[in-house]
Design a protein around this nucleic acid. Structure first.
Lengths: 221, 221
DNA sequence: CGGTGCATAGGGGATTCCCCGATGCGGACG
DNA sequence: CGTCCGCATCGGGGAATCCCCTATGCACCG
């Protein structure tokens, strides 16, 4: 947190030079902010953090080489007081949740107006969290279910049967296959899917399948 | 093509405000170039082209709403003399080839240094084609190889429209959304899906979605 | 001119989606 | 012990989808 009268020290991490210069330019227009360094990969970013001790880092979630999420975790481990605002290309609320959990103070899409980046930076430097309205409501929907039972994964709320079906879905099986495989009615499988959607706060079958596939994919590598 | 002594009239199309301002800034530093307009979607871009008659347009390949490839085709159809430089996030030589075929004069990745954008613009305004070294050799190799040789990725066999829909599927959109988004019938989307399944040798819609989601997931990390 | 690929679209039956409600069963709590 | 609640199991029914057809218009190519 910068002292009154001094400028916030900002570090930029992005592997797109155009975005980098856009950000740098935007920040130089702000009287209370200054850019103290730039990096285009995670390695250089970590060195830069050590050398310049910035107040906040703006980091792209999709870097070449190390993943942006990894960089966040490492950075928060070595520099706990460093605030982080995540920039993302895509409207992937999945990443927003992971980013916040990894220690980021905010998540903003590059489609957002440039002014919002400045707003987000100020908010985070004030110790608050910044999320876009869309993501905020999306996340709120998820949290709303039962106020953070300390469980890292919402999958803990699932019953054994539900998890079993969730797994089979992630494996690419269709409803009929699952029903035959388990020796039950397709209607029962549908009911389980409905419960899964409700518990995981997912809107449609496509979101559920997306979630299942991603989860299955990450659990297997 | 600008006359000697006058500035090249450049139009920018990108849905990321930061990239837009980065580009505008870069171009304003050039004595022989000027920005005559900006747009963040294909619709506004077409109107802008008509209103400002730019010499060249820099367009992002991945726009919200209409695909960047579609914009290029429409633009070249209505304004044949308009030169186009395509900007891309990803190192997808897949897109480069399609873009050139659609009428673009060059293809450059946002990972490239900003100076290269200027170089590319000058090259295209001189009537030549700009490609990065990597893509140039890549394309040359493909041209030289003549027909077939199996094809490294089966995605290469997909038509532009099919690839577009494949992308949206990987993004989690359902058929109705895709149809509305593209302004076509759901039946047409279904037909494209059928062709996708056939070309990719996938049995059911679940497998197709699985494939699309995985591809989309691996592509942006 | 004929062939081929592409984008568009519809018919129609099977399947799935997603909202309802309903029936047992077992455990938890007062 | 009675009651409530989560769980697993089914069904109805209307909408959406899947997935097999056919078909038209267009562009390009030999």
């Amino acid at each position: 947190m910068p002292e009154p009268g001094t400028k916030a020290r900002i570090y930029l991490v992005d592997d797109h030079p155009l975005v980098l210069s856009g950000l740098a330019n935007l920040i130089r227009e702000q009287p209370d902010m200054s850019v103290v360094g730039e990096a285009d990969d995670a390695q250089k970013a970590m060195e830069g953090f050590k050398a310049t001790s910035p107040d906040i880092a703006l980091v792209d979630i999709s870097l070449k080489g190390m993943d942006g999420l990894e960089l966040i975790k490492h950075a928060k481990a070595r520099f706990p007081s460093l605030a982080i605002l995540v920039l993302s290309m895509h409207d992937e609320s999945l990443y927003a949740e992971r980013a916040i959990r990894a220690g980021a103070g905010g998540y903003i899409m590059k489609q957002e107006a440039a002014e919002k980046v400045v707003v987000a930076v100020r908010r985070i430097l004030d110790g608050e969290t910044y999320l876009s309205d869309k993501m905020y409501s999306h996340l709120a929907r998820r949290m709303a279910g039962g106020a953070e039972r300390g469980g890292i994964s919402p999958l803990r709320q699932l019953s054994d049967r539900e998890l079993e079906i969730f797994n089979l879905m992630g494996n690419g099986r269709r409803i009929k296959e699952i029903a035959e495989n388990l020796g039950i009615s397709t209607k029962t499988v549908e009911t389980h899917c409905a419960h899964l959607r409700k518990k995981l706060n997912l809107k449609g079958s496509v979101e559920l399948m997306q979630f299942a596939i991603r989860w299955h994919h990450s659990r297997q590598s």
